[in-house]
Design a protein around this nucleic acid. Structure first.
Lengths: 178, 178
DNA sequence: GCGAATTTGGTACTAAAGTATGAGTACCTT
DNA sequence: AAGGTACTCATACTTTAGTACCAAATTCGC
């Protein structure tokens, strides 16, 4: 709301064109609320008119109420369907895809790209796969132990493994290391 | 409905006990509808009473209608929640499962013999090289964690390495594991 | 049978790995 | 200018790995 006030001030000091653009922007941002308000207004007038019209015919009050009941029941259903929407249950179905890794001596670039590893993470992985400890990797890459641990941890998440040993095994299996 | 008629005929021909059981069964099966009907009946009477009562106070018609609208909106929402089945969005997660083809060139028996590993040590090494933790290895070989640790420790001495990661690297390099 | 090697398991300890969180910098894109 | 990503580093903590030392039971060759 503060921002809105700011923008209004800003617009007031500008040219008429800027004011127009502000109004347009304001309308676009609040068009949902405006639309609802208009609908409500129309509805109220309609009801008032119906009330007046139908009250002349004395016995049609039942029909009137019935219509209202019907309408609001529908409205309720519609509202409910709108409210229910975000409650989407996600059922995860695991689909097993068997792939036959080609026994190419070259590094499997395709599999490597799938992992979306960053430069540093890949460097860490390479040294990791050589059997180096975190401390050794830190020394070789001129990093702190903390940084290596961070990279390694992120690496394990991306590779969907839980330890460096699994990472090594997977890296060798996918042939993404030398 | 046909089935219902059939069942009724069938029940009529039976003993009173059977008829009773049929009625109980019938009630259990239709208790939802019955409940709805009862609720509706009560509601209608309530409305009629409200109508008569409130019409005396002339200007309260608006409140009356408002209450009806509110009530039926709620009813609509409730009905909708009962009717609308939870939308289930199935997210298919493709999990890639790799087959290790038996293309592995012969295991380097010569290098393996040089290490003078015992049977258990080799078993531990094989699982180690698959990326398993000591706890997992213990579980698979029906051993205690202590034993696995002992084997692993002895293994590292024999392989002249200082950690399981180095052992894996060396094992893969010498092709002494599958 | 005896000794060596193997296997199994324990305790106690240290070292390393891994997780979680926060935070600052740098670069790039919109 | 703002937001996102990558990179860096730190602290604090839990878990796992690894070492050392010990002690049974078993196996196997001599």
């Amino acid at each position: 709301m503060k921002d809105l006030y700011k923008e209004m001030n800003k617009a007031m000091q500008g040219t008429p064109v800027m004011a127009m653009s502000f109004l347009k922007d304001f309308f676009l941002r609040t068009r949902h609320i405006t639309l609802y308000a208009c609908c409500m207004a129309v509805l109220v007038f309609l009801l008032k008119w119906l009330q007046w019209k139908l009250l002349i015919v004395d016995n049609s009050l039942d029909i009137y109420i019935g219509l209202i009941a019907l309408f609001f029941t529908m409205l309720g259903i519609w509202v409910a369907t709108q409210l229910v929407k975000p409650k989407i249950k996600t059922v995860v179905v695991e689909k097993e895809v068997y792939i036959t890794p080609q026994d190419s001596p070259v590094i499997n670039e395709a599999e490597l790209k799938k992992l979306h590893l960053s430069t540093r993470e890949l460097e860490v992985l390479r040294l990791l796969a050589k059997g180096h400890s975190n401390a050794e990797i830190a020394e070789q890459l001129f990093l702190s132990l903390s940084t290596v641990k961070t990279h390694a941890s992120n690496l394990f998440v991306k590779m969907d493994v839980k330890s460096r040993t699994q990472a090594i095994e997977k890296a060798k299996r996918l042939k993404i290391t030398a």
